[in-house]
Design a protein around this nucleic acid. Sequence first.
DNA 1: AGAATAGTGTCTATCAGACACTATGCA
DNA 2: TGCATAGTGTCTGATAGACACTATTCT
Lengths: 252, 252
Amino acid sequence: MSGGARGETEYLEAYRASDWPRPSVAVDLVVFTVLDTDLKVLVIRRKVHPFKDAWALPGGFVRVGDGAADRGEDIFAAAQRELAEETGLDPATMYLEQLYTFGAPHRDPRMRVISVAHYALVRPTLAPLVTAGTDAAAVRWRSVAAEADEPLAFDHAEILAHALDRVRGKLDYAPIAFELVPETFTVAELRSVYEAIKGTTYDAGNFRRRFKRMQTDGVIVQAPGKRTTGTKPARVYRFAPEAVAGVSGDDA
Amino acid sequence: MSGGARGETEYLEAYRASDWPRPSVAVDLVVFTVLDTDLKVLVIRRKVHPFKDAWALPGGFVRVGDGAADRGEDIFAAAQRELAEETGLDPATMYLEQLYTFGAPHRDPRMRVISVAHYALVRPTLAPLVTAGTDAAAVRWRSVAAEADEPLAFDHAEILAHALDRVRGKLDYAPIAFELVPETFTVAELRSVYEAIKGTTYDAGNFRRRFKRMQTDGVIVQAPGKRTTGTKPARVYRFAPEAVAGVSGDDA
DNA sequence: AGAATAGTGTCTATCAGACACTATGCA
DNA sequence: TGCATAGTGTCTGATAGACACTATTCT
């Protein structure tokens, strides 16, 4: 900082801006997993008003410090914290990425809330371990396909639709499907994840060819052992993240 | 709303949230155009602290109303308003889309500011008409290739890098190049926009083939007249937005 | 032996990159 | 007439969809 006339200008500018009304800023989370070859999203039953007892996406307010010394937490850190709180899982084990920011003036009946939505991908092996956070009466993995289900609170249906678009689009050019299978997986298992996300079927032979290309590209390597599925056992593979650029999660 | 015990819970919840410190929320704009076959970004010279006299991306605070009656403006509306203020152009003539939200705790030295970055595309025919807004000492179209240029204020270099990634990626699957040519254009003109954005060259013959596919798909239609360029005149075409789904701009 | 899934190979259409070639208007 | 750009055509390699086929294991 500086003093004198510059300092005065600076002070006035800071005063002006901080004197205007400010919105609350939240993060909302669209947490996906694949269970029983079906794409699921994590919903919680709200304990408090508004939308008490309704299903909603997990989320919470970004911690903003008061003043110059404490500036609060980063937005991505807030999303990680909420993800941990609302699932009981270690956020380092999940893929997390910022999605879109929703800020319609009346999206929250209480007050002006701007929500930075994120989406997360949880391995099916971890999905059954989620536990309800303190602000939730219950958590549930809800099928994304279940349109006729109970409506979601706030504008969460719109946020979910956005997240679906993003994941479906990103599936074609980014290695995100690997976040939704166990550490080791078969060709058929990876295919079923693609099918669950896209909502279509993939030809088994053609998908295998694509799979093989990823193998020759070094994205996938064979893992020891086989998976027995009641019929001919299948080879298992492992994702090789070291061969892929930009797998860090949030790209900001 | 409701009364009684529910009302009390509701009140307490609202009180709690609104009593916490809140951040200022801004919109920043990455405004692109193509001039002289070069991709340019609009920068302003700051009039006030912090970063006084430095180049920065245009932007401003989102107007947030005070209380239940006035809730302020929508985020997209704020971006449109800033776009109009900072360019002097009608925002309806430009493509505008939300990009990413930046909220590192110390990205603004004054206070906690969360910025919802957007990017805009301006036709080269309109680009020379931009005028500086009230908070800018000057505006300039700056080449994005000019790495060795003066640094940008705040985290605006990072925002610009994000916007470049988005535009370059989206160019391949969305009809955004049409936002950067005049109403009617030749094959070569559209190709030079692709080249300016991607920073590479395209084979003229192959690009023409791609162009023709868009024509048979109804995305492009021939327009009357020819463009004379000092040599053999070229046919001119027009974008046919009615044939393309999802050209609305912001997709929220 | 039969069912079911794992795994392979082929044909075809589409599209991109490389590149040779023709057509036309202006200096 | 020559040059520069407009515009056309061809060859090749990579990939996706459709689909027929073989291989292996469990019951």
